[in-house]
């Protein structure tokens, strides 16, 4: 018996939508579940004090500071390198063997699991370079990890800048560097920022790599050469060792809210970029 196409059409489209809605449902559930269980415990005291007895009590201030340090430093290191790579690929060279090699490197780097980055950071930064478990080791490791994201988004943003701007700028007697800094990067800035902001998010979420490089010291970090536990790792330890469920939920809420804000701002930046360039 042959099922009429119109029936298949309705069934198939219905199924696709159902699966999509299921996916969105999972997302909503995750956010709602964490926030519902965690937000009541997120108090000012929780945000502004240090943990006590391994996190069973007290707050998460050192972890917030540690996360910001690690993520901020990682992006601070990675962004100039990533943007420079994108500028080189788009403005300073033609497609060829060289660009293929650079792209291959970035693509492979993007596929490497974070635990491998952790292993590498551990043996290279903490041991070989002697940085020890420290914010700096963690940040350097994460900087390499987010580099492909920054390269890719910057490259796309730069390519979206109209070619005619290059004609105009050169026509007005600018050098290539003047064109890049004053026209291209200026126009591509919102797009580049999107990649940078998403990289901050990825750095804050990351656990495996920072566990093996930044360590898990509970104290308040006073310099980048100190070990510091990040929020994500703290959440992992709290929940895994069953130290304090309320504190675990509260920490997860802070993470979720941070990620929500980061994704929202990345989205807003992208919209601005699209509106401006296209």
């Amino acid at each position: 018996m042959r099922i009429p196409p119109a029936v298949t059409q309705r069934a198939a489209v219905g199924l696709m939508w159902a699966l999509t809605i299921l996916t969105l449902g999972v997302l909503l559930f995750i956010i709602a579940f964490i926030l519902a269980n965690g937000l009541p415990h997120v108090t000012w005291t929780f945000l502004s004090t240090s943990p006590e007895s391994m996190g069973r009590a007290g707050g998460v201030l050192p972890m917030i500071v540690g996360s910001l340090w690690v993520a901020g430093l990682a992006v601070l290191i990675s962004a100039p390198v990533g943007v420079a790579t994108a500028v080189y690929l788009t403005e300073y060279t033609r497609e060829g063997r060289l660009t293929a090699v650079i792209r291959f490197g970035a693509d492979c780097l993007a596929g490497i699991p974070s635990i491998i980055f952790g292993l590498f950071g551990f043996v290279f930064f903490t041991i070989t370079l002697g940085l020890g478990f420290s914010i700096l080791s963690g940040a350097l490791t994460l900087a390499i990890m987010v580099l492909p994201t920054i390269i890719r988004t910057s490259e796309e943003a730069i390519r979206a800048v109209p070619k005619s701007y290059r004609d105009v700028s050169y026509g007005l007697g600018s050098t290539r560097w003047q064109l890049v800094t004053r026209v291209v990067l200026r126009s591509a800035l919102p797009g580049i920022s999107t990649g940078v902001v998403l990289s901050v998010g990825r750095s804050i979420s990351e656990t495996a790599a920072v566990m093996l490089t930044a360590g898990s010291a509970l104290g308040f970090p006073h310099s980048v050469f100190q070990s510091s536990r990040t929020l994500a790792l703290h959440f992992y330890v709290l929940s895994r060792e069953g130290l304090s469920m309320p504190n675990a939920y509260a920490t997860a809420s802070i993470l979720i809210i941070a990620i929500l804000l980061i994704n929202l701002s990345a989205y807003a930046l992208m919209r601005r970029f699209v509106a401006k360039v296209v």
Partner: peptide
Amino acid sequence: MVYAVPIPLP
């Protein structure tokens, strides 16, 4: 040089 279509930088 002035181009066929006006190209104001944004």
